[in-house]
């Protein structure tokens, strides 16, 4: 499954990072949690100036996805959470995506804030809506939800809170 690494990949990436080219030839790197920060720092030094986007995904009800294996490594184990960072190189006009697996039991991942200060609000959003903790973030507080809110709404085990449609025959609210 591991695709051929493009020649323009930044130098200094930690060894053994799995790679795939997904839809539309978008290149995706799969660092593990330990090498995530180093990989992003290498990308930042290698010409990816902007962190375009950072978000999280909760794979609770869609666990069976296959992940590629890094060189000389076992295939990655899919975990419940995934943090997805989209980097952008303005000089080379390229995008690069990093997906890092974050286990449910220990949802902690390094913050990218010291590499890209623009990660601040995006990581706060991921923390607020998924409960993923970004170690090293200067102000990890809720950003969209009220301060006293309980739970993390974008998790798949958090209900939608839908109100059922009331038909004529159904018992009314009163």
């Amino acid at each position: 499954m591991t695709a051929e690494a493009p020649r323009w990949l930044p130098e200094g990436l930690p060894p053994g990072i799995a790679l795939s080219t997904s839809t539309l030839d978008q290149v995706v790197l799969f660092p593990d949690r330990g090498s995530y920060h180093a990989a992003v720092a290498a990308c930042a030094a290698g010409g990816f100036e902007i962190l375009a986007d950072l978000c999280a995904v909760d794979y609770l009800t869609h666990p069976g996805r296959s992940l590629p294996a890094g060189e000389g490594n076992e295939p990655l184990v899919p975990e419940r959470f995934e943090v997805v960072a989209n980097l952008l190189s303005m000089a080379a006009r390229r995008r690069l995506r990093l997906r890092v697996q974050v286990p449910e039991s220990d949802p902690v991942v390094d913050s990218l804030w010291d590499v890209y200060p623009g990660a601040e609000a995006m990581e706060r959003e991921a923390y607020d809506l998924f409960g993923i903790v970004f170690a090293g973030h200067p102000d990890l507080t809720r950003i969209l939800m009220p301060e006293e809110w309980e739970g993390h709404p974008l998790r798949k085990d958090y209900g939608v809170g839908r109100v059922p449609v009331q038909f004529k025959e159904a018992p009314g609210p009163r």
């Binding site: 997904s22 839809t23 539309l24 978008q26 375009a52 986007d53 978000c55 995904v57 909760d58 009800t61 869609h62 997805v84 989209n86 995008r95 995506r97």
Partner: peptide
């Protein structure tokens, strides 16, 4: 699959990161 698409909105880069699990609803739409 998963995909990130971006266009230039009047305010800047608006992007859509979408994950599909093969059903008729997006699994994640950011």
């Amino acid at each position: 699959g998963e995909v990130y698409q971006a266009v230039e909105s009047p305010r800047g880069e608006i992007g859509c990161y979408m994950v599909s699990d093969g059903s008729s609803k997006p699994y994640r739409m950011h």
